[in-house]
Every structure is written in C-alpha cells, then in structure tokens.
Amino acid sequence: MSRYERWNGLLSLLASRGRLSVEEAAAELTVSAATIRRDFDQLAQQQMLTRTRGGAVAHTVTYDLPLRYKSARRASEKQRIAAVAADLVPSGAVVGVNGGTTTTEVARALATRADLHTEGASPAVTVVTNALNIAGELVVRPHIKIVLSGGVALPQSYELVGPLANGVFDQVTLDMAFLGVSGLDIERGATCANEDEASINRQMAVRAERVVVVADGSKLGQRAFARICGIGEVDLLVTDTDADVRAYEEAGIKVVRA
C-alpha cells in the first residue's frame, strides 16, 4: 500500500468515525503502529487532522476529500476508462471536461494520443474545462487548445465555480462533454457532492452534443447530494469490466467497458 493510499484510508476512516487511535488505524490498514504515527504527524502538518495522544481526530471536515488523496483509488480502472474515453475524441473536436480523478486521466490520455500531435499551427483538439489541474497539465501541449473558465477555486476538486465559470459555458458549444461523477443512479441520474460543481457540470452537459459519463463500477448505483443531469441526458457510459451495467443498458444508455 502506497503512502497516498494509506492517507486516503486514514482520512476516510476519520471522516466516518471522527476519532481514531493508532492501534485501530494500524489494524484497519494492516501496517505498523510506527507507520501510522508518521502518517498522522504528516497529515497533521498539512492540517488534514488534529493529532491527539495515541491517535487523531477529524479536522473540521469539508464535503469531500481533496483530489490528491483520492487519486490512488481504483487507479488502474480509471486509467483504462480514460484511454477508451480519449479514443472517442475525433481530431478537431471541442470537448468539455469537468474536474475529478477519472476526468484528469482522460485529459492525460488525450495529451499523449500520438495521432493528435500535429505539425501545423492549428490545435488538434480544444478542451474547455473548469478544472485548474487539468488546464495546468494540458496548457503545455501545443496540439491542444485550452479554454479555462473563471470562478472561485474549490480546494477539494480544483474546480472553478460560480457566476464567472457560468459565463464561459453560456458562450460555447461542445461536441462532447466528459463528466466525472460521484454517483450514477437510474432514478436520480448523475450526481456529485457539491451544488456549485453540479451547476457548472450541468451547464457543460447542456452545451454538449454528446454527454459521456466516465465512472468506475464503485460509482454506479450510487447517489450524491447535488444533481448534475438526469439519466436520459447521458448518451454514453464508459466504465470498467467488472461493473454491473444491465440497468443502464436497459435505460437506453450505450455502455463501453474498459
């Protein structure tokens, strides 16, 4: 287990329990008590938790774990999903991409697609995003034109939200929108944990000719606080091979397994 996987596990346990002893954490993660003490100390330095004698307590918890602590979850599945999703983008397309670990992998896969590298002045693909980290990774790629929204930055997802972000998506037309979600449920549709993110993601979906949800199997059948769009507005689901997708296919969504 990597350091970031342990940190993700510790923060998840603290979010659900509020308090955790060194011994409990060591047993849960099957590592030594010394390792947990070091992890607690390092997370406390980053103000992600409060250190106590013999353990730690949850800091004032925001709605979700920061993106950098979630990136290790189901990493191989996300990379396979991303590779398949990136291959759907034709040269010359205008693509919307929201924030998240899976969509970040989609952006990386687009950046490294050999057939999109062009010698001419025109970019091969235009990516419109409200995610600071995605824009930062792609801006150095000469074959990709980046359009970044304005807005207020959320530290959990690196997404820009608010009226300034809305203004950009009011003025663009997208061939395709890649949406990372917290949950995809037949009745509730695509959802995420934050209402401001949902508002921007909803606008992105409305402006797109084709809406593609990229989500591993752990997100299917789940629902979060804020609704992005209904299930009928999703054109394609790209997920992993172990996911149960029968209900989505029956609902008329095309499903691609990675």
Rank of each mutant, 00 (worst) to 15 (best):
A109G: 06
M204W: 07
V22F: 11
R51N: 06
T129Y: 08
A258M: 05
E187R: 14
A121I: 13
A86D: 07
T126P: 08
R141Y: 03
L67F: 07
Q47S: 13
R53D: 11
R3S: 12
R223K: 11
D196N: 13
V212R: 06
K219W: 04
V128N: 09
D175Q: 04
R3D: 12
N201Q: 13
L65H: 07
K145A: 15
G217R: 03
D64V: 01
D242Q: 14
D216C: 06
A75G: 01
D240N: 14
R74C: 06
D196G: 05
V106Y: 09
T103N: 11
D196V: 08
A215K: 04
K70M: 12
R6V: 05
C192G: 07
F178N: 08
E209R: 13
T101A: 10
D64K: 15
N166M: 14
V238Q: 00
T62M: 05
T112L: 08
Q156W: 00
Q79C: 06
C192F: 01
L29K: 00
L43K: 03
R257H: 14
E23F: 02
T191Q: 05
A124F: 10
T62C: 00
L132W: 12
E5K: 14
V181H: 08
S71R: 13
S12R: 10
I36F: 01
D87C: 01
V128A: 14
G189P: 02
Q45G: 12
K70W: 01
D39F: 11
I134P: 03
L237N: 03
S91Y: 11
A44C: 11
L14S: 04
I231E: 01
A58Y: 02
V256S: 05
V168K: 02
